[in-house]
Simulated scan of single mutants.
Amino acid sequence: MGGEEKFHEFVATRRAALLRTACLLSGDWASAEDLVQTTLTKTYLAWERIKDHDAADAYVRKIMVNTATSWWRRRWRGEQPTEVLPEIVQPDFAECSALSQDLWAEVRKLPARQRAVVVLRFHDDLSEAATAAALGVTVGTVKSQTSRAISALRDRVQPAATEGSVTR
């Protein structure tokens, strides 16, 4: 099978999983579709240079995380004040993930790197080593970012869950 056929096969088998991951990284379905399209375009352009097409998942995840991060950074520098506020687009949580809306809202508040680690570790079920490889960081960085993210989520979510409960 030629390189282009292998790329089409890769897209056909992995597109749904990539969309779910992109939705968790970007926060809404429309941005996720754009993120996957951009990621697959970049992957297609580099497909012939990828030596092991079976290991393309890690390559694609790294492109996706880096692209989402650059979009997030660019968005803040590109804001323009306006007289009329735009309509707020709500994320489509029903299609996006099985996470509750409250937890997802807290995950979205995490810094981009922590959010990427949480998505790759717990949604995509990658090991620490695979997550480190996908993000281009050390395993220690993945561990510390995971710890910080979980601690932040625990601090934000736990008080709300125990508000009505009686402590002993």
Rank of each mutant, 00 (worst) to 15 (best):
A98G: 13
W47G: 04
S127K: 09
D57P: 01
D34Q: 07
Q80E: 15
H53R: 11
A160V: 07
A105I: 03
A22F: 05
T67D: 05
T39A: 10
R115Y: 04
T82W: 04
F93P: 01
A68H: 00
A16D: 11
G3V: 08
V107A: 05
Q80K: 10
L135T: 02
T41H: 14
L18P: 00
L40G: 02
L19R: 08
R15E: 12
T43I: 05
T13A: 14
L110T: 04
V117E: 10
D34T: 04
V89G: 02
L135D: 01
T146K: 14
R108M: 15
T162Y: 07
A46Y: 08
R20W: 02
P159I: 03
V142Y: 01
V139D: 06
F10Q: 03
V117W: 07
E106L: 13
W76Y: 14
T131H: 05
V166K: 00
V118T: 08
W104I: 10
A132P: 00
H8M: 13
R156E: 15
T38P: 00
K51D: 13
C96S: 14
R14P: 01
Q145F: 11
I63V: 12
R77F: 05
P81M: 07
L153P: 00
K51H: 15
H123T: 14
E5M: 05
E79C: 12
D34I: 02
Q90E: 11
E5N: 09
A152Y: 00
P91W: 04
R168P: 13
W76Q: 09
L99Q: 08
C23E: 11
S100E: 12
W29Q: 13
V166N: 04
R73H: 11
R108C: 13
P86F: 06
V142K: 01
H8I: 06
P91N: 08
Y44L: 11
A58R: 13
Q114K: 06
V157W: 06
R20K: 15
R113W: 09
L126Q: 12
E48N: 14
G164N: 06
L85D: 14
T43E: 06
A98N: 09
A32T: 04
L110I: 06
T162M: 07
W71K: 06
A32C: 10
W76R: 14
S144K: 07
S97D: 08
L126W: 10
L99V: 13
T43V: 12
Q101C: 09
F7V: 02
W29C: 12
A68D: 00
S151A: 14
A68R: 00
D155L: 11
S147L: 06
R108I: 09
A133W: 02
R121D: 04
L103E: 12
C96I: 07
E95F: 08
Q145C: 11
W29G: 03
T141W: 05
N66Y: 03
T131W: 04
R14M: 09
S144V: 13
T167P: 04
Y59T: 11
R75M: 09
P86T: 06
T69V: 06
L19C: 07
W104D: 12
E83D: 12
R49P: 03
A58V: 12
D54K: 14
D92A: 03
L18G: 03
